[in-house]
Design a binder for these strands. Structure first.
Lengths: 229, 229
DNA sequence: CCTCTCCATATTGTAGGACAAATAGCAGAG
DNA sequence: CTCTGCTATTTGTCCTACAATATGGAGAGG
């Protein structure tokens, strides 16, 4: 009784269930959204019976959804103890950033070397938002940031790399460190994005990699400097 | 009835089931072993009902095991079409090697910089087998190779990196390209391992990274040069 | 008064059966 | 020969039930 009821987003909204065969996917999406939007805070328990009621499905799909989220790294799962929303320690964040730097450096290099005219055109199109000069709030920035990094990896042309980067708890990290995103920080990030984009458009792999490394290393330093949530 | 029975490794051995709570893990291990040892060839179908009979468990654990293997990337899973043992295309292998190079380069760099005396001692101990001068067969080499690369990542001290590398279908790749491992190739690989180990022991990050890059790039070239299985 | 052991409860792990839905392969019509 | 429709296999989901385990509290003992 230490907790005043988990306070779920929608206690029992009708939740129009999707077509047959998409039940699990639906649950996964909902829960992922709740976790990344911090409607479910890190460390929160995910009890199967609660979820069966919330989504009006049986335990089977719920369990599968939890497994998938565990595979994505969004939740932790201990035998007989249930699932918890994952909480990243500063050390884990630091380690993940260290990996991300290498992965995205490779991506930037490959993107700068990409030859496909069509792909490059789509890249330019996808990153258009970063040239918008209006102020962004944290949420807008997170979306723009995700799209920008994804655009680079798409242009890079290494599908495995793109998949891997997406599955690397990057959203989780960003959600957890989202609080330090002051307007000044956001502005600096956007400027760095533009520098990276410029290097890629000019087909300068070294500059692109360097700019991306600088960008991520600054971000990592900031993220680690957030000991408490 | 177009198939003469999938010819499973052990059609219905007793399969002493482990303690409660370990059923899924048990199935996962068995199937993973079968896949990596190529007792289940790439493209083979994994039908749930067959597996329930083979392991004498219900569909629940089987489905969960398949999900976990899918998350590991060892099998592919399409809705209503079931699970197949994953088959890597040359392109995928190339892409994965490209990623692996970056990941392990980072690992080698970190390992060469590691300060922990105890960890270093354990590293030296773990890589002892690579200094054995006797001939290896392909299977022995694969085990030694896996242990060697794992030892580096352990010494590197970045747990996320180690986890990620292990879950990167590296074993699958090695199993799929295992056929090109002629004695001469093995010998060259072992020599390269020793060079990498030497650089790490001498705490020379640049040399360690360079040696590892060379090693993997040669391996990648060989792997891609294997169009057919 | 504090600590430790034991038990009741909540929750997960697994079984087994049932049915709907969707894919794939085959047969027959055009 | 190609296309259409059907059927069989397989998966997706649900339900119920029970075993096994962790958790937290009650009571005994120091």
């Amino acid at each position: 009784m230490v907790e005043p009821a988990p306070a779920f987003p929608q206690p029992d909204a009708p939740e129009a269930p999707p077509a047959h065969g998409a039940t699990v996917a639906h649950i996964v999406e909902r829960l992922r959204g709740d976790i990344l939007a911090r409607r479910l805070s890190p460390g929160a328990r995910l009890v199967e019976s609660d979820l069966t009621m919330r989504f009006a499905v049986s335990r089977g799909p719920v369990r599968e959804a939890l497994r998938r989220l565990a595979a994505e790294g969004l939740i932790e799962h201990a035998p007989h103890r249930g699932a918890l929303v994952r909480r990243l320690s500063p050390r884990e964040i630091q380690e993940l950033f260290q990996i991300r730097v290498e992965l995205e450096s490779l991506g930037a290099r490959l993107a700068a070397q990409a030859d496909d005219t069509d792909l490059r055109a789509r890249f330019v199109d996808a990153i258009r938002p970063i040239f918008d000069d209006s102020q962004r709030n944290a949420c807008e920035y997170l979306a723009e940031n995700a799209a920008f990094h994804d655009a680079i990896l798409t242009l890079a042309g290494n599908r495995q790399l793109r998949d891997l980067a997406m599955r690397l708890q990057l959203p989780l990290i960003m959600a957890q460190v989202g609080e330090v995103l002051t307007p000044k920080v956001l502005e600096a990030s956007v400027r760095e994005h533009r520098a990276i984009a410029a290097a890629i458009c000019e087909r300068d792999p070294r500059a692109a990699e360097a700019a991306l490394r600088a960008h991520l290393e600054r971000a990592a330093a900031m993220a680690i400097a957030t000991p408490e949530d």
